[in-house]
Amino acid sequence: MLIIEVKNLTKKYEYYKKAPGLLASVKSLFHREKLYTKAVDNISFSVEEGELVGFLGPNGAGKTTTLKMLSGILYPTSGEARVLGYTPWERKKQYQKQFAIVMGQKNQLWWDLPAMDSFILNKEIYEVPDAQFKQTVDELAELLEIKDILDVQVRKLSLGQRMKCELIAALLHQPKVLFLDEPTIGLDVVSQQKMREFIKTYNEQKKTTILLTSHYMEDVEALCKRIIIIDHGQILYDGALADLMEKYVDHKVLTVTFTKAVERGDLEKYGEIKESAPFRALLHIPKTEVKKSAAAILTKLPVDDILIDEVPVEEVIRKIFTAHR
């Protein structure tokens, strides 16, 4: 069943151009040049129930603007979107009770009060029954390991603890759709890992449809089977993460360390040399040639160790963005 349907969605922002300097500031009092930028440019996609889709793109690509339109914060300039059968920017209460958005860079918790106060507030706003509220808070606080900090003022919590509390606040009403905008931004590696595990488990257990944006490829690789790549407001790729690798990657990465110094010329015939030192080399070898080349290197060169890796997803995506620009 389709949960999110987006058709030809466009969002244009207007802004004013002003040259730097005092004279330009005075001039701008009388005349300002109005300009427009397309943050989202005619995008279309759909998401099935229970899917966890990664929304990838560089800064200013249009990811957050899309999430803001789908959550009803922004009106689009043109196009259509239906989430759970509702048009988000109509802001119907029935829709608002069924989705949540978590933004990694901002919070909804009351800064000077304990997180529990914000939870109680959300409980009433979303009309969550007492028993469900208690069960959800207990369950999520246990899962996120923050039971002991729920009565501490939010401003005294670490960023990781705050993000976990933000997630609980957003999930209290058990939304069917969850928009996560950079949920791991600024977190240390341990907290990132915990957050990822939590999102994965939650998606699997509750079958919540999740649209996630992140700059961290680890998030995407760990969580998303499907990704949508967006840049300059346009979708560049929409499909399985595995297919992306198949489509855009034609080689594997071989890292070889030697017991004796090896000349660069001895390596050239096996593939494209990316790094070369007397005792170590990094080569890009066509996928079809990997087995043959690895066997030849092992037999003909003084190999101490050899590693065959996939190209990092990050590099593939960087390649797509570079090609697009």
Binding site: K68, G72, Q96, I125, Y126, E127
Partner: peptide, 12 residues
């Protein structure tokens, strides 16, 4: 500040 976004997404 954009904090207003927190309120327009909630059913109140």
């Amino acid at each position: 500040e954009g904090k207003f976004s927190n309120y327009v997404i909630k059913p109140h």
